[in-house]
Design a protein around this nucleic acid. Structure first.
Lengths: 218, 218
DNA sequence: GTCTATAGAATGATAGAC
DNA sequence: GTCTATCATTCTATAGAC
């Protein structure tokens, strides 16, 4: 290979680097999700990324740095969903959007969710600082919002933290436990219709559970 | 060491075997939960069980057989909780007891829950037959019960599978994600009072969410 | 920037004395 | 039934030619 493709279009070294890093990161996400940090091998990641193993180590010197990058990417996606929470003052609307968004992430980025789950399960050796800083701050501001809703009588009095845990648990379950769900669904993943039903039900039970009439939003 | 303890009471070989197997299994559960199958090392398990590594291999020839035994034990504990479901026909009572029991298991056997979570996360290489047989049957009979409640108008019309997923997700979250919960709780595990609050809230939101007046039971 | 060959470290499992 | 010494394997990471 040179610096050209069959199209004749020139490709700079930066592009090659970008392309390779991208396919390595994608491969790494799926392998780390499936086997955990220790169980994952750099050979398998290289194989899925379709490059020689030595080349992988050229881009990411150590397995740990590669892992860290994967976790970084996931965490950013998670934080994006937070916006749904902030845009509005109506709990029905805010929670419907936040829960729906979290369900969508579970469907679209199940590998990312699994890597995170695996990390927390194993006492978060890599992301512990995220938990203590960014996630902590995020949680504090959102529990404050929930508490305000309670004080205003907009939702039933609940412990805001435990409400968040319920939302996280229920939505992420559809990513982290998708193998179990798939098996119980006759070996097939939930289809689009089933997934929408599940999403709608999660929203409805939680909203009803805290005293909101669901469907008020949208 | 011989076949006696300081009490002078004779100890048969069966007792020694039983004692050693027990401490190995306890150590294995905690190590597998913390590091996953691949990440766990037989040396560390042996160290925590306070026996030499070679001795561990005397009782459990391979790491995989030991792991299998650990998973077996957990699965049995999980199945026990199922009884709460069957004893009675009142959904408020049955669900309150089932959810409470599942929360208690998350508190009392967090390691077991983590091993299971880790296994499902990694596509259940060891327990796949459990998922397809025992868990499948268990789920089928319980969804039938839930469906009957719906048909009798005792609870709101919901998809029974997704309701079970919500219960599993929410209750097991307190075991699987206890590190994250602990970090967000200022580095301390939830105390007894907090845990009871969480349990009560999980029961209340879910029951209210499906149209049951909570507290009707008990 | 790519890739073969291999060094170096960790670890599951066993042999064999006690 | 216990335990030291060690083998065999696997895997991360690198050296060095192209």
């Amino acid at each position: 290979m040179g610096t050209k493709l069959e199209t004749g279009k020139k490709i700079g070294k930066a592009d090659i680097r970008h392309e390779n890093e991208k396919s390595i990161l994608e491969a790494a996400e799926s392998v780390f999700a499936e086997y955990g940090f220790k169980g994952a091998t750099t050979s398998l990641i290289a194989k899925r990324a379709k490059i020689p193993k030595a080349n992988l180590h050229y881009y990411f010197p150590t397995k740990e740095k590669l892992y860290r990058q994967v976790v970084d990417n996931i965490f950013n996606i998670w934080l994006e969903a937070a916006n749904s929470f902030d845009d509005c003052n109506d709990p029905a609307d805010a929670l419907t959007r936040y829960i729906s968004k979290k369900m969508d992430i579970s469907r679209d980025h199940p590998m990312g969710s699994k890597v995170w789950a695996n990390e927390v399960l194993h006492k978060a050796p890599v992301i512990h600082d995220y938990l203590e800083t960014t996630l902590r701050e995020w949680t504090d501001t959102r529990t404050a919002v929930i508490q305000r809703w309670i004080d205003q009588g907009k939702i039933a009095p609940v412990n805001p933290e435990y409400l968040l845990y319920m939302i996280w648990a229920t939505t992420q379950h559809y990513a982290d436990y998708n193998h179990q769900i798939e098996t119980l669904n006759g070996g097939k993943p939930l289809n689009a219709r089933q997934f929408e039903d599940a999403k709608e039900q999660v929203v409805r039970i939680i909203l009803t559970g805290i005293g909101i009439e669901p469907g008020k939003a949208q």
